[in-house]
Design a protein around this nucleic acid. Structure first.
Lengths: 338, 338
DNA sequence: ACTCGTCTTTGAATCGTTTCATTTGTTACG
DNA sequence: CGTAACAAATGAAACGATTCAAAGACGAGT
């Protein structure tokens, strides 16, 4: 009683064979009412709990799905993760979340871990180049779905949002306000960020005299944004951009903190500011933050769907889903004269 | 090659016994240089990856620690979770995070799941009354540490923050500003919330003429805060409280959104506002939000430490750690005349 | 040549489940 | 009464790792 009872203990206690106990658990219809009751009673009395490791070992696969995100502290990813968890739960699976923190070695660590766990499948927002590993995984029967990243081959499924389009929407919006000297804040070494930058540059190229400078931030966090903001504040007023596009809302909130610290600088009048992701906190910022909204729930849900399709087709059928982002205008870019 | 290789395959390929392969993996010193090299080569060639299920089955225990939180979307919990993960990683363990969403049945679901997984231990911010289940778990050798909750018995360890004190600090601060008609926003059915309320009431009782009314919110989210805020806005100005204490920052941000929507109402002049948790987003709110800071990293780290102590002592040694919260004053309660 | 000690290697047993071919039990029908 | 048809229960084998007692290899010492 002190240690955990096994199925064998239950069988002894209920005076049946182990196979019968297993049947009660997995195929109740195969067992007669009388024995079923007896077995269930024994299970309750002994406090028997299935040993998942043994189950998995026999089954050769776990009921677990691995999810590797770039930063769980970022509401964008926690929202995606939540949606994926809900969708997986409905299918009787569990989602294991790993946080790579945009570090390729941590990413590799989680991939190793998930492989040892024999996960059903892997959802990943990659940091480094993981295509080789994904190929290996597929060979081994572990389907993978890229999340928030477009599959560049037709060898795996992916669900993403059109980052170029999002970047274009943001920059276009700033240009429509009449701003010409734009700045982009982010770490372009991240694929999503560089795509957003490309989109922004495309918009800028469409407008004569418009320019965009790139301010490389040390990460994609509020803190990194604050640092960039401080650098902007220290510039000569004439050297400051008229509008700033941050590659995510955390950065934008950080920039906003710095800019508003200097009481003479007004948002959006002196500098218009737009972020990306439209996290819940964007609306309640000092100056409610304009942003580009991404359908996080759809991303998470679809990722699980695609994984299920991969499994059903034994990893032969791949699909690519691309959502379109949406501009959300708030006060931080509210109509200044044009 | 297509399917995953087992230790037996490696043994065949390297012309050694399975035990030797296992030794190469677990006790490299016991194996001669020559064979070690040969085995490692085979492992690489076959792409062998340990099967964790088999390992666990043999070991009788996993390297996993279960963590059940009330809401992963809340930065307070995601921060605690992150700290716990980091601390666990250092010990070679993995943290599985379950989100109860303040729902007792989901909480029970995760407890079942973790028990089936034979987790090393359980960290939990309980919703319902879980003491009976915790007793059962301890009997089965699964140590449990209560997180953000004071253990009411000496039968298990716990790490928490003094919520009464935090509530007292918040209310005291509002009273020190000269406010007398206070309001408390939150769902007192949650233990932490009711403790914070008690602390606030204690502070109020110390000041003649001071009152505090309780506004029950539908949850602890930004949305729920917005609803309460709307209700406040609709009141006659004379009926509105002079200061509002929200049981967490999400609620406070929601209330702030509603209040600032009505352009004539000023924070802190007309209504002072203070939250709880001091999440990163508090500082960048419309009006930077005063709050009560809790040491989230210390909570997560300590939780893992306590769990380790429980394991070492075989669940006989329990310890209770209580941290003290800290008042952070920002503009939302900035000095109005007293 | 023989024994002893040390270092390597071996391989059967084990963990707790599921599966499935077999056996046992029961009922119905000619 | 014999037997076919079906339902229920059985228990050995398998999953893939770790463990550990035992066997094997080898050199040193006498």
């Amino acid at each position: 009683m002190s240690q955990t009872a096994s199925i064998k203990d239950v069988a002894n206690h209920a005076q049946v064979a182990v196979g019968t106990v297993s049947n009660v658990l997995n195929y109740p219809d195969r067992v007669s009412q009388r024995t079923k009751e007896r077995v269930l009673k024994s299970i309750a009395e002994l406090g028997f709990v299935r040993n998942d490791a043994a189950r998995q070992l026999r089954a050769g696969q776990s009921r677990t799905i691995g999810l590797i995100v770039l930063d769980v502290g970022n509401p964008f990813f926690s929202s995606v993760a939540r949606a994926a968890e809900d969708a997986a739960t409905a299918l009787g699976s569990v989602v294991l979340v790993g946080d790579s923190g945009q570090d390729a070695s941590r990413e590799a660590h989680y991939m190793d871990l998930f492989q040892e766990q024999r996960v059903q499948g892997l959802l990943i927002s990659p940091v480094g180049d993981v295509s080789a590993r994904i190929d290996t995984l597929r060979e081994r029967g572990v389907p993978t779905v890229l999340v928030d990243e477009l599959a560049d081959t037709d060898r795996c499924s992916s669900v993403s949002v059109d980052d170029q389009e999002g970047g274009y929407l943001a920059a276009r919006h700033l240009l429509d306000l009449g701003r010409r000297r734009l700045a982009f804040v982010g770490t372009p070494s991240i694929r999503q960020v560089s795509s957003r930058l490309e989109g922004a540059q495309r918009a800028v190229a469409e407008v004569p005299d418009a320019t965009i400078e790139v301010l490389d931030s040390a990460g994609q966090t509020v803190l990194a944004g604050r640092q960039v903001g401080n650098a902007l504040v220290e510039r000569d007023p004439g050297e400051r951009p008229e509008a700033v596009f941050c590659s995510n809302d955390l950065l934008a909130l950080g920039v906003m903190q710095s800019l508003t610290m200097l009481r003479t600088l007004r948002i959006p009048d002196d500098i218009a500011l737009i972020g990306y992701d439209d996290i819940d906190f964007a609306i309640s910022a000092v100056v409610p933050l304009s942003s580009i909204r991404q359908p996080t729930e759809a991303l998470g849900r679809t990722a699980i769907e695609l994984l299920a399709e991969e499994q059903e087709s034994n990893g032969t059928k791949h699909r690519t889903v691309v959502f379109t982002p949406e501009l959300v205008v708030r006060q931080s870019t509210a109509g200044s004269p044009n």
